[in-house]
């Protein structure tokens, strides 16, 4: 299953959020979705997921718009805002209502809780969770329907170093199983080694859409981590809305 984003445009009053954004996310590898703050990453993801309507253009998942999917979580898993929880509800109950909404068996909640390492705290109220635990719970929700496509907005936020390593391993595994995985981030280092492709955006448009190795070679930077960071900064130099004078 592909994600196809085609010439998306959207304005919020005078501010242009998406200015003709097009790209494709293919199954089998992790696609990094990077760009400075305000580049349109979150808006694009919300349009892909049918939360926001574009002024024009289309975003299709497996050839269909998100809103027409039946039991959508069995096709697409998404993590947008880890804080989006009812604090009084337990982790397991949070997943339980989601499972019910997709006609999934309740046993599925325990499977994803174990998969994300939350089995021990499943019956604790989500309000008491740290940001890292909330990210894990958000990921558990995304994996609930065993979807072929994953859309994850800043999944590394709030994770401790051990958690980051775990998340990278999990994302690589999921892509290895043939899923299409779109991961947004503004820290290149997080995507190091796991992203096969990068979609770099700025000011609502795609600046670069290429395999990671190609990007590094194109921009003629150094090698490894520093090289990717350099390539990214060079690409987004003109696109960033806010930047200190030191860079």
């Amino acid at each position: 299953m592909h994600i196809e984003v085609n010439d998306l445009r959207k304005r919020y009053g005078p501010a242009v959020a998406l200015d003709g954004m097009s790209f494709t996310v293919r199954p089998g590898h992790v696609t990094g979705f990077v760009g400075p703050n305000g580049a349109g990453k979150s808006t694009a993801m919300r349009v892909i997921l049918g939360l926001d309507a574009p002024d024009s253009g289309s975003a299709l998942i497996g050839g269909r718009p998100y809103r027409s999917l039946r039991r959508p979580l069995t096709h697409v898993g998404a993590l947008l805002d880890a804080g989006a929880l009812q604090p009084g509800r337990t982790a397991r109950n949070h997943l339980l209502w989601l499972a019910h909404s997709q006609d999934l068996p309740a046993s599925r909640t325990d499977e994803v809780l174990d998969l994300t390492g939350l089995g021990a705290v499943a019956r604790r109220r989500a309000g008491g969770f740290s940001l890292g635990m909330r990210q894990r719970l958000g990921l558990a929700a995304a994996l609930l329907g065993d979807p072929a496509v994953l859309v994850l907005d800043e999944p590394f936020n709030g994770l401790d170093p051990e958690g980051i390593v775990w998340m990278r391993g999990l994302l690589a595994d999921l892509a290895g199983q043939g899923r299409a995985v779109l991961v947004s981030s503004h820290l290149m280092s997080e995507l190091q080694d796991i992203a096969g492709r990068l979609v770099v955006v700025g000011r609502g448009r795609v600046i670069a859409d290429a395999p990671v190795a190609e990007l590094i070679a194109q921009t003629g930077g150094g090698d490894g981590r520093a090289g990717l960071e350099q390539a990214y900064l060079r690409l987004t130099r003109d696109a960033a809305e806010f930047r200190g004078t030191t860079s």
Partner: peptide
Amino acid sequence: TAEYRRGLIRTTLLATPG
């Protein structure tokens, strides 16, 4: 309104786009 306050409404609409 609790769903709007926490942003949970987006999760709800992801699970049920209708």
